[in-house]
Design a protein around this nucleic acid. Structure first.
Lengths: 340, 340
DNA sequence: ATTGACACCCAAAACGTTTTGGTAAAATAT
DNA sequence: ATATTTTACCAAAACGTTTTGGGTGTCAAT
């Protein structure tokens, strides 16, 4: 069933049918309803290719998912799923399409963005995994693509973003630990060229300052290759050399796996001899006894907000917005009190 | 740059340019090359909407990813990523598009398939998470959609599939365990209405028979809600009541988390007092000391094969094919030898 | 010299929408 | 009663491709 056949059935012109379905005001209420009823009855759904061609609007949000590096064989995949779940909830409601490219390496990722813009002619994109300086922002701005980022660059100019409160969440952990008399707190971060890692470091440093604890550079480690066995060894070394350490904060679930492994091998009791706190790990959180304490973020909400912003960008008087998710610290019992 | 402008630059008709780029034989080799050179030079890429409208071909493979149930907040997300990585490698090469819907519940999932067929007008779909009897196969067959399934129904009639060797992989584990004198082997499965769970059960039973071990119904459990704490409690109970158990096979990584937790809490040493084997868990595998032994599947290869089949379905003399991935058992040291 | 086959090219139609630029009739204002 | 505005509709053009159904010129065979 196409619009021509439908209009014939209705005894109306193609124009009127199209405009009735589009909700235009130059069609009477009565006709609109009749058209919609018929469309439903005959299961008419406009040919998207024709519609997009004619209107020159894609009504599609683009997204590139890297399947390598930070995201490959790693746990934070679940964070993507949550974010995507949020996006798709909003998009399904609004009847907007969602087009995703998958990139198996950096080259494909770059290509994917170009394809989104120049081949798919998508005009709305959600960007994520931001670097402290991110070329993609230039590319999108230059080509007049509406975009919202999930994450931030160091320089926050002229774009809309949603993000976790990276700095705030580590401050929350630090405050909690320090209130329990922890002074020798390790933070195992990932490479700082990811801006969220950079922000978390800032939070770590700021908390130390706030509570008058001297920064000890042995206590701050960045791990590039997150392979758990490797991080386990690093952390083992750290614990052997620095007996004073009473708490470890892990930036990713993979690192937390390493920390657990290290503690097990050294026969250090988690939640008794040492506190471990991690970020958003759906599985590892629950593996130890007691279960790992963790920062939890409403990632789905982030996805919803991002799409909301993106869709409202059509308005002429749209001004750049941002949304920062509130972290929650769930103490499952791996944060212990240290005697003074 | 559109085809009209490009043809003007070339001094050729629109037809010839279109057919040159399409590789038709009624354009001279020389012209073809010239056209392609110009197309590259001026970064011409055909308007997909116009092209699809005119040719009535979508050149798009559809996929529905459920974000609930088995897949939500679970680990086997990584298995999707691997499969998708395979698909996208193949598709990116072939310049075929990949359209994905995300479904947050059963209703949305059903809708998503309908949208793929009737709105997006996709003619090729990859199906997964098959039930032992699966309605979707009827839907697709009825609407003449080409499809390949990842997984199988109980009834294997008239479709092409790729799959893990579920039965074979559990037989592999069983053989390995039994050779090491294990006789009291538990298998923790998930709900049997997923066909892969059903197949694995068959493998379990077959192995027992083969080695003349009597089936003990206390040793076979299915877990519906895979929440690790719950499985941990179930497994704890099991171990307390059945002291003879020397090996546990876990069907999913989440269950393995439960098993690890149970053993830790009961102070049973994994790899010494008890053997644990799991399926394809990228993280949990590596958390224990020694690391969990596991069945590993080449899921990426599965994705590649599925797409290959799907694309070759254009041929008139295509016959249904299937591909079963070979499992590997990686013994990382959690399989111990039992004294006779 | 004529015919047939072949290589190479093209104008126009078609795909199914949306949008433009109207018109006629009805309602309202003068 | 007439002029103006508003309401409700429509024919035709446009979007950028692919496909159809040709055509012309060249070359070899007769």
């Amino acid at each position: 069933m196409n619009i021509k056949q439908l209009s014939k059935k209705l005894g109306l012109s193609i124009t009127t049918v199209s405009r009735a379905l589009g909700g235009y005001s130059d069609v009477s209420q009565k006709t609109k309803e009749r058209v919609k009823k018929f469309a439903k009855k005959y299961k008419y759904s406009p040919n998207l290719n024709a519609s997009r061609l004619a209107s020159n609007k894609s009504n599609t949000v683009g997204f590139v998912l890297p399947l390598y590096g930070l995201n490959a064989n790693q746990l934070n995949q679940s964070s993507f799923f949550e974010f995507i779940a949020g996006m798709s909830k909003k998009l399904n409601n609004e009847n907007i399409h969602f087009f995703m490219f998958f990139a198996n390496n950096a080259e494909e990722e770059k290509q994917a963005y170009n394809k989104l813009i120049f081949v798919e002619k998508v005009t709305k994109i959600i960007l994520h995994n931001l670097k402290t300086n991110d070329d993609r922002i230039k590319l999108l701005t230059k080509n007049k693509i509406n975009f919202v980022t999930w994450g931030r660059t160091k320089d926050l100019k002229n774009y809309s973003w949603v993000d976790l409160d990276n700095q705030g969440s580590i401050e929350l952990i630090m405050q909690n630990l320090i209130e329990k008399n922890h002074k020798n707190i390790c933070y195992i971060n990932i490479a700082e060229n990811y801006n969220f890692a950079y922000q978390r470091k800032q939070g770590y440093l700021k908390s130390l300052k706030k509570f008058n604890i001297k920064y000890n550079n042995k206590y701050y480690i960045t791990i590039k290759n997150e392979e758990p066995t490797k991080s386990a060894n690093l952390i083992k070394n750290l614990l052997i050399k620095n007996k004073k350490i009473t708490a470890i904060i892990c930036s990713t679930e993979y690192t937390a796996v390493g920390a657990i492994k290290a503690c097990n091998e050294l026969n250090i009791k988690i939640g008794k001899d040492i506190s471990i706190v991690t970020f958003d790990g759906p599985v590892v959180e629950r593996i130890t006894t007691p279960a790992l304490s963790a920062i939890v973020h409403p990632r789905e909400q982030l996805g919803i907000k991002a799409v909301e912003m993106l869709l409202s960008m059509g308005d002429i008087n749209y001004k750049h917005q941002n949304f920062m998710a509130k972290p929650r610290l769930i103490d499952r019992g791996t944060i212990h009190k240290v005697s003074k």
